Computed example of a mutant assay.
Amino acid sequence: MMTTRQVARQHRRRRRLVLGATVALTAAGVLAYVVMALQPGHKVDAGSAAATTRVTAQPRVGDTASPSPSSSPSPSTSTSASASSSASPKPTATPKAAKSSPKGIQKSARTSTVPPTAGRIRPGTTYQGVATAYAAGVGDGACLFGPSPDMMIAAMNTTDYETSRACGAYVLVRAANGKSITVRITNECPLPCAPGQIDLSQQAFAKLADLKVGRLPITWSLVSPSSIGTMSIRYKTGSSAYWCGIQVIGHRNPVARLEVSTGGGWRSLPRTGFNYFISADGSGCGKTIRVTDIYGEQLTVNGLKVSANVVQPTGVQFAQH
């Protein structure tokens, strides 16, 4: 049987063993924590926010993940975002860009129907105005074409006459009663003729209404007739190698420009109100002539002499439109 002293020593030994085990376990835990803290993986976890920031700041070619709101997406990223999210403003911008192209095409198509060389009177356009009548005599007028082979002619108001630009134009005139007539512009109707007004020969007016009507509301538009023959060139009276005036006669479409060859290129001649193109210094007189209509078609005529007041046929004509 154990004595009291032996029992006390045994208790003290047990306490030391328990204390040692506790200290050992505590040391082992601290050591394990230190070891874990020193592992590289643990450092990445602790700094993951910073690492993520660096990655998202770099361009991600081919990355399909949504871009960080704080960084500018790369082109490939914006394309993916546009394709994957309808809430993004990118898809809205893309349809707008797609729509702008057809609009641009339509606008270009509309522009092409209005020739760049056309003046106030443009093809495919309907004008409103009033028709009046005048005694046209033999049909000559401000355009200086001379006597007309028929009396289906008219004088254009000064504004639309546009310094003889309307000379020779064929115009379809329609009245409210349904009747219509095609006339050729050979004259100018001065003020008070208003823009849109056409002063018809009495013979032409009578095709639409009784002359007693006086003023007839009309609409009118430019036309390009089918049967017309070929155009001619005429040098004005007084023309020579030192000064000349050149006129185009019998053209299907309005003439926009007349040029003469000067040896060093083409020279565009100014047009007068009496429908002649003038070379004040004689440059190009008797040389090759190039005529352009409002549609941009160019016809070249050569071999013509400076024969004053002589109508010289050319054998060419503008295309019908």
Results as ranks from 00 to 15, higher is better:
Gly315Thr: 05
Phe274Gln: 13
Glu188Asp: 13
Gly284Thr: 00
Gly263Phe: 03
Thr4Trp: 14
Asn177Tyr: 09
Ser68Ala: 09
Tyr235Ala: 00
Ala65Trp: 03
Lys212Cys: 09
Thr64Val: 05
Gly273Asp: 11
Phe205Ile: 07
Thr79Asn: 00
Val130Pro: 01
Pro115Gln: 04
Glu162Phe: 05
Lys96Glu: 12
Ala135Thr: 12
Thr300Glu: 05
Thr186Pro: 03
Gln39Tyr: 10
Ala98Phe: 08
His11Pro: 05
Ala131Phe: 08
Thr262Gly: 05
Cys193Arg: 01
Val30Gly: 05
Ile278Tyr: 02
Ala32Val: 07
Gly137Ile: 07
Pro116Cys: 10
Gln10Thr: 13
Thr292Ser: 09
Ala169Trp: 00
Val30Met: 04
Thr4Lys: 15
Ala37Val: 10
Ser239Glu: 03
Trp243Ile: 01
Gln128Gly: 11
Asn253Gly: 03
Thr79Arg: 00
Ala256Tyr: 00
Ser283Val: 12
Val18Asp: 06
Ser164Gly: 10
Cys189Thr: 03
Thr272Gln: 08
Gly282Pro: 00
Gly104Cys: 09
Asn187Arg: 03
Tyr127Trp: 09
Thr3Ser: 15
Ser226Glu: 14
Ala133Pro: 07
Ala176Thr: 15
Arg234Ala: 11
Cys193Ala: 10
Pro254Lys: 06
Ala93Leu: 07
Lys287Asp: 14
Ile278Phe: 02
Met2Val: 15
Arg290Leu: 04
Ser164Ala: 15
Asp63Val: 00
His11Asp: 14
Leu211Gln: 08
Thr262His: 04
Ile181Met: 09
Lys90Asp: 04
Gly245Asp: 04
Pro75Met: 08
Asp199Ser: 12
Gly20Phe: 13
Thr26Gly: 12
Tyr235Ile: 02
Val223Trp: 03
Cys244Ala: 04
Cys167Asp: 08
Trp220Phe: 12
Ala50Val: 13
Asn302Gln: 13
Gly129Asp: 08
Leu216Gln: 04
Tyr276Leu: 09
Ile233Cys: 01
Gly286Ser: 08
Trp266Gly: 02
Leu19Asn: 05
Gly119Trp: 00
Gly250Glu: 06
Ile181Gln: 06
Ala50Ile: 11
Pro59Ile: 06
Gly129Pro: 04
Asn302Thr: 12
